[in-house]
């Protein structure tokens, strides 16, 4: 992946849109989900769909902060595309009979915390932070999870949907890494120091505190489903490999930071990291649902219906 021409990318994005109604959600194949798979798949899909949705919200924040008009427009498309992924994944869940009473699946507590954080603070985060975290999340969670899903699930409609989703995703990553390199290129020493100083921002610390358990929680979830742990880690190492392939990319301090974090996550023997974070997962798991504030209204825009008149 070399740095890409963002203007051309925007044209390409506009020219290759798809909609939920391009897929026949009632086509045969749903029966290929085994009884044994079903409950774990249900939990997995719910998490996946929420991650897409959370990613969408992060792109919305990026669109506000983007340094150029082109990037701003690209990010507002990505915002919508991530929402499309979430919608499509819900449509799959519905196809598989996983939506209770046609309801949106409940987000787990870690996700609720992330949603809350995004709603309160994401728009205020400097573009560098989300611009680096988002590709990481995409590659680790989306990338690894989707590949695994396709290896496990035989339903052709699922494959059809994810082929489209992955096409989008590869563009999101291309742009993500290009932007990281752009930032690395312009980062003077002073700016770098300023960026690092941001780490001390309590709002950001809060964000990190909710991001870390999410990763560990997801790790637990996918492992429960039978994903070999190494696969997830491999995906995360991909972030390090691609993000660090150029001098500019490596110079981006946020890349360095997130990369370091990725290393901790993938190194199970790093007790300094995993003991407290796993503890956080446990603690957040105990937070009673009604202790959390009401979900923001952007969450209610999710839908599995390809067409609507309301």
């Amino acid at each position: 992946m070399a740095s890409i021409d963002l203007d051309k990318m925007l044209e390409k994005i506009k020219g290759t849109q798809w909609a939920l109604s391009d897929i026949d959600w009632d086509a045969p194949g749903a029966e290929l989900i085994t009884e044994e798979q079903w409950p774990k798949l249900k939990e997995f899909m719910a998490d996946l769909m929420w991650i897409e949705h959370v990613g969408a919200r992060a792109f919305a924040a990026l669109a506000k902060k983007a340094p150029t008009d082109t990037l701003r427009e690209i990010y507002s498309y990505f915002h919508a595309e991530e929402q499309r992924h979430a919608n499509a994944e819900m449509a799959l869940m519905r196809r598989w009979g996983m939506l209770e009473g046609d309801e949106i699946p409940e987000p787990n507590v870690n996700l609720r915390i992330i949603i809350e954080w995004l709603d309160r603070f994401a728009d205020e985060m400097p573009v560098y932070v989300l611009g680096t975290v988002v590709p990481m999340l995409e590659i680790a969670l989306d990338g690894a999870l989707c590949t695994f899903l396709l290896e496990t699930v035989k339903d052709p409609v699922c494959h059809q949907a994810f082929e489209k989703i992955n096409d989008d995703e590869s563009r999101h990553l291309g742009v993500g890494f290009t932007v990281m390199e752009m930032q690395g290129r312009s980062a003077s020493y002073i700016k770098m120091v300023q960026m690092m100083a941001r780490v001390m921002d309590p709002r950001l610390i809060l964000g990190i505190a909710s991001y870390m358990p999410l990763l560990n929680k997801m790790r637990d979830n996918v492992i429960a489903m039978g994903l070999p742990e190494e696969k997830l880690y491999k995906a995360m190492q991909k972030f390090e490999r691609i993000g660090g392939r150029t001098e500019e990319g490596r110079r981006n301090p946020w890349f360095q930071l997130i990369k370091q974090h990725g290393r901790w996550v993938t190194n199970r023997s790093n007790k300094m990291y995993h003991v407290p974070v796993d503890a956080l997962v446990k603690i957040t798991g105990m937070v009673p649902r009604n202790a959390l504030p009401a979900v923001p209204s952007w969450v209610k825009e999710l839908t599995y219906e390809p067409t609507t008149t309301r």
Partner: peptide, 14 residues
């Protein structure tokens, strides 16, 4: 034919 398709994948029929 029936409405406006937006990028989040939904066709808003009008």
């Amino acid at each position: 034919e029936k409405g406006i398709r937006t990028v989040e994948g939904i066709e808003h029929q009008v």
